[in-house]
Each structure stands twice: as structure tokens, then as C-alpha cells.
Computed example of a mutant assay.
Amino acid sequence: MSQKEIEQLFNQLDTSAQLLQKELDVSYLEALSETGENILGNKIPHQIDDVPSDEVVGKLTQIYKEVALDSMEAEDIRKAIQLALLKASKTDVLQPNHQMTPDAIGFILNYLIEKLISGKLEKVRLLDPAVGMGNLLSTVYNGLVSKKISVEAEGVDNDDLLLTLASVSTTMQRQNVTLTHQDAIQDLLMDPVDVVVSDLPVGYYPLDEKAEKFKTAAKNGHSYAHHLFIEQSLHYLKDGGFGIFLVPAQLFETDETPGLMKMIQEEAFLQGMLNLPNELFKTRNSRKSILVIQKKGNNVKQAKQVLLAQIPDFKNQKAMLKFMQEVDSWKKENI
């Protein structure tokens, strides 16, 4: 990893985005999307009716000339883009469901996926049905590739701006990712996948007529979107495939819990529930956990002991090492 290269690419993205933000009178996120597409479009600034101005086009062209993606590792490119996305989250004040999944959480999810599939698969198909800006999917993708696992991935989102940013990011990183702009609760045109990994949107799903087709639909009023996403993900998992989700810590403490549990028991095995460190979250209600489920199939069984754990503070290396050893032991004995 080259910190200098990461900072240089971030500065190029940031400077060019700021120029476009001012010139086009758009949000930082929109400007970042525009500059990313310019860089991928032969490094030629997109100009309509003399906007941006010739002066700004000249400045952008000079910045783009110095962008050297081909000489950078994919993970370094991801980290540079992530810095720009972090700035966007502060500059544009993004809603919670549009916030980027923190790297520390992404690395834990990646570690769990590696453990669960190690020794089983040399090629993996991934799906993130709420891909957003693509940072979590890219984190897992790069992590698996670093372990010599071949990866192809699918991402779905109904927000065209976030999906454009995901496209810019994954294309810059030279990743084999197919992105689809649609509501992930609708039927998806894709082959089954080995792993679904997602930071699920939390809240109510507004389209009751679509939700009522699901086992997790609420009997009255709107259904929980994250419940529907879990069920939908199982539809697109191969038998024995894993769903690894970032979910509210209170997932199994609501009035809709019985419907969710019934669906999981019918379709899959609940193999783990891991609470993330409280220090990561400002309030009790915003705390998240990691849900691990495995779709039923031949030679797939319920773990003798469900993996229930409190993930320690990421800064406590000794405690983290002990946690990883416990996961390793659990996997050998149960999966």
C-alpha cells in the first residue's frame, strides 16, 4: 500500500470535484460522480453549452492527465475513493441509509466470509442487494482476491446517483461487478450467488402490495425493509450459501420478530449473531450487529452451537486476536 498514491488520487478527485461542484451548482457527491465519469471517459471533461467554462475544463484536463489508475492497486484506489466519499458524507449531510459502511466493519464482514467459505470455494459469486456507493462490496471483493479467490459480484440499488458512484468505484478498481438500478425487493434477473453481504437499509418499505408477497410482510401497516431484504436475499442464494448482514442490534426484539424467525427457520439456519462494539455507535438505538444465516440444502446443517459473540473494541488487538481464534474454533466444530 502506498499512502502517497492514496493521498494523491484523493486530492485529484477532491480538487476536481470541488471545481465541478462550484461550476455546476451541484452537491459534492454529484460532482464526485461527474469527475469520476470524466476520468473513466478518456479523461475528457464533459461540457454542454460551455458549462463548465473553458477555463475550468482546462484545469480539469490538467488534473486528469496526472491520474494514474493503471499503476495503482485496487485496494489503494478504493481507499482514495473512500476518503472522497467520507468528505461527501460530511459536506452533503447524507441520510443514515446513504452513509458508507465503515472500513472496520467491512473488514470484519470480509473476515467472516473468508472463514465460512475457506476450503470450499475457489470462485465466489457475491451479491449486495443494497450496494449504495459500493464501498462494502469492494472491500469484500478485494479481501477475497487477496486470498487468491476468484470473484464476480452483483450490486443492486434504486438510487441512481449512489449506483453511478459504485460504478465509478468498481470500474476504477477493475473489478468484475455487474450493477443493476432497481428496487431489490422486485424480481431480480441474476444467477444464484454463493454469498450475500449487505449493510441493510433500516426502516419501513413503502409499497405494501409488493411486500405482501413475502413471508416477513407485516400483518398491519408497512413492513420492515430489512426483513424483506433478508428474505429476498435467500431467494437468490445457492443452497448452502451464506447471508451475512449488518442489521439493527434489536433485530429480534420487535413485534415483527416472530414472522422473521419463522421465515428464517423455514428457509435457512441461523448460524450466528455478533454484536459490534458499542463504541462505534453514538446511541443505543443506532447499534448494529452481524447476522449470519445459511440457506438450507444437501449436507447443510444447523450449527451445534450458534455463534453468539460480542466483538471487542477494534483497537484492542489482544481481544481481537482472541475473538478471531474463537471464530476459527467455532467454524471447525460447527460448519
Rank of each mutant, 00 (worst) to 15 (best):
S169P: 02
L189I: 13
M172H: 03
K147P: 06
G119L: 11
G143Q: 04
L127P: 10
P201D: 10
V202L: 03
H181V: 00
Q175H: 07
Y204D: 09
Y141C: 08
S150Y: 07
L188Y: 07
Q186G: 02
L136Q: 03
Q95F: 09
T180W: 00
E154N: 12
L116V: 12
V168E: 10
N158Y: 08
Q175R: 08
P96D: 13
G132Q: 01
Y141H: 15
S167T: 12
S150D: 09
P96G: 04
G106A: 13
I117K: 08
K148I: 03
L112H: 07
K115A: 10
V196T: 07
G143S: 11
Q99G: 05
V156P: 04
V197R: 05
V177Y: 00
V140R: 03
E154I: 08
L94G: 06
L137S: 04
Y111A: 10
K120F: 01
S169L: 15
R125G: 09
Q173V: 10
E122V: 06
L136H: 06
M133G: 14
L94H: 01
N158P: 04
A153H: 00
E152H: 04
N142T: 15
Q173G: 12
G132C: 01
T101H: 03
D187V: 01
L144V: 11
I185C: 08
V145E: 15
L200K: 08
I113M: 07
F107P: 01
Q186W: 00
Q182P: 12
N97R: 10
V156Y: 05
L165E: 02
T171W: 09
S198E: 00
I185R: 05
L144W: 11
K120Y: 07
T139N: 02
D160H: 13
S146V: 05
P201K: 02
A153D: 03
S167P: 01
G119E: 09
S167R: 14
N142A: 13
D159I: 01
I185M: 12
D199N: 15
R174F: 13
G143Y: 08
G106E: 06
E154Q: 09
K123R: 14
N97A: 13
S167E: 15
D128T: 00
L162Q: 09
E152S: 14
G143F: 06
Q186D: 14
G134R: 02
P129S: 14
H98A: 10
I149D: 04
N142S: 15
D128N: 00
L126P: 03
M100H: 09
L126K: 03
D103A: 13
V202W: 07
P102L: 14
D199F: 08
V195F: 02
G106L: 11
V140M: 05
H98K: 15
L200D: 08
V168W: 04
K115Q: 14
L136C: 02
G119I: 10
L137G: 01
L163C: 01
H98P: 02
I108L: 15
I113K: 06
V151S: 11
V145I: 14
L189W: 09
A184Y: 04
L144Q: 09
Y204T: 14
L188D: 03
V177L: 03
I149V: 15
Q186I: 07
L179S: 10
T170I: 07
E154C: 12
K115C: 06
